[in-house]
Amino acid sequence: MNAEGAVQRVETVSRISVVIADDHPVVRAGMRALLSQDEAFEIVAESSTVPDTLRAVAQHQPSVLVLDLTMADRTSLPSIPDLLAASPGTRILILTMQEDPAFARAALRIGAAGYLLKEAATEELVGAARQVANGATYLQPAMGARLAIADAAAPGADADATLTARELQILSLLALGHTNQEIARRLHVSIRTVESHRARIRDKLGTETRAELTAAARERGLLG
């Protein structure tokens, strides 16, 4: 009896807890069905908006967050650092319809652990979730090829490598029209901190106007 109990405890500990975040119930149901086929996964919560996802991640501290890039007409990219701050042990796997390599590049640089297109979910979701849960980075092979081609065609396109995750986050929020004060409140930092980050972004990218910031953010896949 004790041996059986020990086995059960080991199985419980070894399971991979997952939060699914997508604003389409049918898509969430599909992801749930795919992951539930593997007994290693335990779906602990689902969400359909960025705020709900932040709450679910903070509450459940999942091993993996399967995250759509756009929910309720709002890009989730700027929230990746907040999601990681709420649950540092969570690995974020992006599952999206966005085929532009810029989105994959931006997501991985801002803290995501994997990037997978929804069209390949049936074949690759379980393996991708396992891989990121084990600490590795997953990039769908087809997307990796597109990324390599894009980088080869535009060698200077990775200039945003000099931007930190926080700077990428602030750049996206500025491009979405948020003021310094609004960003400070949202990120729980001082206005002076936001101003300092904005100055560094301006120096690194040579942006001055809101239009230039928006263009820079769009080039880096930070706007849905």
Results as ranks from 00 to 15, higher is better:
N2R: 02
A3I: 15
E4W: 07
V7S: 00
Q8F: 12
R9V: 04
T12R: 15
S14V: 01
I16P: 01
A21G: 11
A21R: 05
R28S: 08
R28M: 07
A29G: 14
G30N: 12
D38F: 02
A40N: 01
I43V: 15
E46S: 09
D52Q: 12
R55I: 14
A56L: 03
A56D: 03
V57C: 10
Q61V: 02
Q61I: 04
L65S: 01
V66I: 15
L69T: 03
L69Y: 00
T70L: 15
R74W: 01
S76Q: 06
L77M: 15
P78T: 06
I80E: 05
I80K: 04
I80H: 03
D82G: 04
P88W: 08
T90P: 02
I94E: 00
I94R: 02
L95A: 13
M97L: 13
Q98R: 06
Q98C: 07
E99N: 12
D100N: 15
P101Y: 05
P101D: 10
R105Q: 06
A106I: 04
L108K: 05
L116A: 11
L116Q: 11
E123D: 13
E124M: 10
E124N: 12
L125D: 02
V126C: 07
A133F: 09
A133Q: 07
N134H: 13
T137L: 12
L139D: 05
P141K: 08
A142W: 03
A142L: 09
M143F: 06
A145L: 13
D151K: 13
D151N: 11
A154R: 11
G156N: 13
A157N: 11
D158Q: 11
D158L: 06
A161E: 12
R166Q: 05
L171M: 11
A175P: 02
G177V: 10
G177Y: 00
G177D: 06
E182T: 06
E182P: 01
R186H: 04
V189N: 07
S190D: 07
I191M: 12
T193H: 12
T193Q: 14
V194Y: 03
H197S: 13
R198Y: 00
A199L: 14
I201Q: 04
D203M: 10
D203L: 13
T207C: 03
A211T: 10
A211F: 00
T214K: 04
L222N: 00
L222Y: 01
